[in-house]
Design a protein around this nucleic acid. Structure first.
Lengths: 214, 214
DNA sequence: TAGATTGTTAATCGATTAACAATC
DNA sequence: TAGATTGTTAATCGATTAACAATC
């Protein structure tokens, strides 16, 4: 089973390859691409083993073909539909963030319990009432969802999504979701992330890095 | 040196302890708290070794005192100031998200290059023009910053922040920042996160988990 | 005391890094 | 060919898990 870290890096490589492609670069060495991704060449080569695409010694990797190979590996052929639950400040920001991005992942529906938001179209996405979730999802093939509701409501939303067939959840709510083991959950805990940054970026202490005496 | 994963978990434990405290719970066992945090009891005990707080056999941990110990360990005594760069959809969402949270971390200034946003107060935070960054930071003790600008501008922002004395950056821009090694950068790459979820939540494949034959 | 839970060390596991033969 | 870069295996590293003596 390929690790989630490898998947994350492949996603990153693909984005970098698209940039190179736009710049007219035809081929790239593992060392170059790895540096851009913030990793090592050996790691990149191991990641690409999973994809199955082979470079050629002394010539490196064909940018366009490698990007295609990663696409074939990562993406579901017909594309995947994504739904968003929670259209507050964060939800709206996510809609605008994901609206004009990759064509393979498209946000097809948003849900909110606030009647003032229902039936509006926000960043090109229709907002449905919360309690119509199972009904709307019945007509969709969405297996991926983004949760951007307050902590208190997140578990209930996760259960409703799971019942509706969702198999992957990107969770922004600061709670640990209890879901069945065949549902993949990725948590983005922004408060924890900020506290981490605050700890390691603190003014004086936390800064004692072992350095060999000169 | 304590690992960043431990710091992240301590931040999580503290949040859970606050919830327990609110519910009037006095003491808690490692097993309970670990389950809530989605980890193991052994891992939690090892994390707490770093903090220096000791539980008592058969009685577990005093909720209030453990929370205090984690606070002493994580927080800078006088509190830390945070600045936000980029007041777009995401930046505004982050302002509202971080506005009413922890008192130890406070967003004291926001920056944007859009003149229409400058001098407005958004979610209680004043917005300054981009080019006044070094000047405004001179009067602050902020060592922590959040970057929520488009990819193209992020590197320049990171450099300006670093020059102004910032030591920790929470970066939402989808680029890898090149900073000096004494600056801690935490990346939140929402597109990569969504693609990970899409991969592991895909309809058919990617789902071959080794299970012992019944 | 006995039983349960703790602090802490030792064993395990997984991912990363280094090494090297294969190849253009 | 020689030189550089690749694919892939072996060694290393770090974090997690398991084990166990200490303790309330």
């Amino acid at each position: 089973m390929v690790s989630d870290k490898t998947i994350a890096r492949l996603s990153l490589y693909r984005r970098l390859l698209k940039v190179l492609e736009g710049e007219g670069v035809r081929s790239v060495f593992s060392q170059q691409l790895a540096t851009m991704a913030g990793g090592t060449a050996a790691q990149l080569r191991r990641d690409l083993m999973e994809v199955g695409y082979s470079g050629t010694p002394n010539n490196g990797y064909e940018v366009a073909r490698l990007a295609d190979s990663i696409r074939d590996f990562l993406d579901v052929p017909g594309g995947q539909s994504v739904v968003l639950v929670g259209v507050g400040n964060l939800g709206k920001a996510l809609l605008s963030y994901f609206a004009t991005r990759r064509s393979s992942l498209q946000v097809v529906a948003a849900f909110d319990s606030d009647p003032y938001k229902v039936n509006r179209v926000i960043h090109g996405c229709r907002c449905y009432p919360m309690d119509s979730l199972s009904e709307v999802l019945k007509g969709q093939t969405a297996t991926v969802a983004v949760i951007a509701v307050p902590a208190a409501g997140a578990q209930g939303v996760a259960e409703a999504l799971t019942r509706a067939g969702v198999r992957g959840i990107l969770n922004f709510a600061p709670v640990r979701l209890r879901v069945s083991p065949n549902v993949y959950v990725e948590d983005i805990d922004m408060t924890v992330a900020l506290e981490k940054v605050a700890y390691f970026g603190r003014p004086i202490a936390g800064r004692t890095r072992k350095e060999p005496p000169a």
